[in-house]
């Protein structure tokens, strides 16, 4: 079955220079197993195609049931240089939660 990441996780995003940081937190342990398996560097890079123009870095925080991603070359030069409406990537956590994941059961 297909689930929306939004239903099993929440998160917050912000800026680190021209990179956006996207933190995703599962609501429970089972959700963490799902995000740890399905949110890979490749799947996140593909999801943000056209938005993240650089490399994706992925970090695990199992203690918080969370993953942290750094999306490099994403904010149009970053902070005050960027011409983007969302120059600080504040809405990108919500953008990642749009992802649909194919799981066996939930």
């Amino acid at each position: 079955m297909k689930i929306k990441l939004l239903d099993i996780a929440h998160g917050r995003s912000g800026d680190k220079g021209d990179a956006a940081n996207v933190g995703i937190i599962a609501y429970d342990d089972k959700g963490y197993q799902i995000i740890a398996k399905h949110l890979t560097v490749d799947s996140v890079k593909k999801h943000f195609e056209g938005i993240c123009l650089g490399e994706v870095e992925r970090f695990e925080l199992p203690n918080l049931r969370a993953l942290n991603f750094l999306l490099h070359n994403t904010l149009g030069g970053g902070g005050t240089v960027s011409l983007k409406h969302d120059a600080q990537g504040k809405t990108l956590a919500a953008a990642l939660l749009r992802m649909e994941i194919e799981v066996d059961e939930i």
Partner: peptide, 9 residues
């Protein structure tokens, strides 16, 4: 937890 994940590398 959301704040802990905010703007970290």
């Amino acid at each position: 937890s959301e704040q802990l994940l905010y703007e970290i590398g």
